[in-house]
């Protein structure tokens, strides 16, 4: 399948991709282009996430959403473009991301198999919390926030999926990140768990942090997101409030295109 011949890309990037406030955005992505061999995964992608804002990246499978996360995290080097966090260039080394106040969850959860819930949540603190007492208190707070205290000593592999998903979220929240990247946080969850997740996301934003999330669950996105960035074939095809995006013909085309392709 050749991406360039698809009519969907004709919609092109939309203006108005910047964060609404005039202040330095928490995350600023500009002109991001990523190629894997001959495949253009991202093509001149730009958007911003402001303080206390929830931005959702949506789009069909293969649109480049997770690639955006990987570039922000330093796991993939872009061919062109820049990523700025609080106005500073994002660190080249992934292990220094945390020092820039960024935390991320993964689609595959990436929990440490064979370790307890508490140990999993302690890992992000291990590099900086010299006094283990502080670390333990922070870990307990993160576990409580996600109603996981009762499972603290359980080995993660033994937990049901929704709880493991909350462990991954607790592990990301334990450092009180200023920017939280969530990769499909609602994926595989039931209605009740999604409501709980929305509550947690609102709590994160209320404390002044920002959230960038990749999500397929449209209802969840419409509920929590302040703005939505729609990617298709590596390009930004729409950007705006949930209501604006919902009524955008380009978005419809992107998703209908996907339906037609099936």
């Amino acid at each position: 399948m050749s991406r360039s011949t698809t009519p969907l890309t004709a919609a092109g990037p939309r203006p108005g991709a910047a964060a609404p406030s005039g202040a330095t955005p928490r995350l600023e992505v500009e002109g991001l282009t990523v190629t894997f061999g001959g495949l253009t995964a991202l093509d001149d992608v730009g958007f911003a996430v402001g303080d206390g804002e929830v931005v959702a990246l949506i789009g069909p499978n293969g649109a480049g959403k997770t690639t955006v996360f990987n570039v922000v995290c330093g796991l993939v080097r872009p061919r062109a473009g820049s990523v700025r966090i609080d106005g500073r260039p994002a660190p080249a080394a992934t292990s220094r991301l945390q020092g820039h106040g960024v935390a991320r969850t993964l689609q595959g959860l990436g929990l440490f198999s064979g370790m307890t819930v508490a140990e999993n949540v302690l890992v992000p603190l291990s590099g900086r919390e010299r006094r283990s007492e502080d670390g333990r208190a922070l870990a307990a707070a993160a576990l409580e926030r996600l109603d996981l205290l009762h499972t603290a000593d359980a080995v993660v592999d033994a937990l049901p999926y929704p709880e493991r998903k909350r462990v991954a979220l607790a592990r990301a929240l334990v450092t009180n990140p200023r920017l939280l990247l969530l990769d499909e946080p609602a994926g595989g969850l039931g209605a009740e768990d999604i409501a709980g997740l929305a509550h947690v996301v609102r709590g994160v934003v209320a404390s002044g942090s920002s959230v960038l999330l990749v999500e397929h669950h449209v209802d969840f996105v419409m509920e929590v997101a302040d703005r939505v960035v729609v990617l298709d074939f590596g390009r930004v095809v729409a950007c705006g409030t949930p209501d604006e995006v919902r009524s955008d013909p380009a978005v419809e085309a992107a998703y209908l295109g996907l339906e037609a392709a099936r």
């Binding site: 995290c73 220094r96 992000p124 590099g127």
Partner: peptide, 12 residues
């Protein structure tokens, strides 16, 4: 257990 994830979490 998971080197890539550890890097994301600040482990050197």
């Amino acid at each position: 257990v998971a080197p890539e994830v550890s890097r994301l979490l600040g482990v050197r």
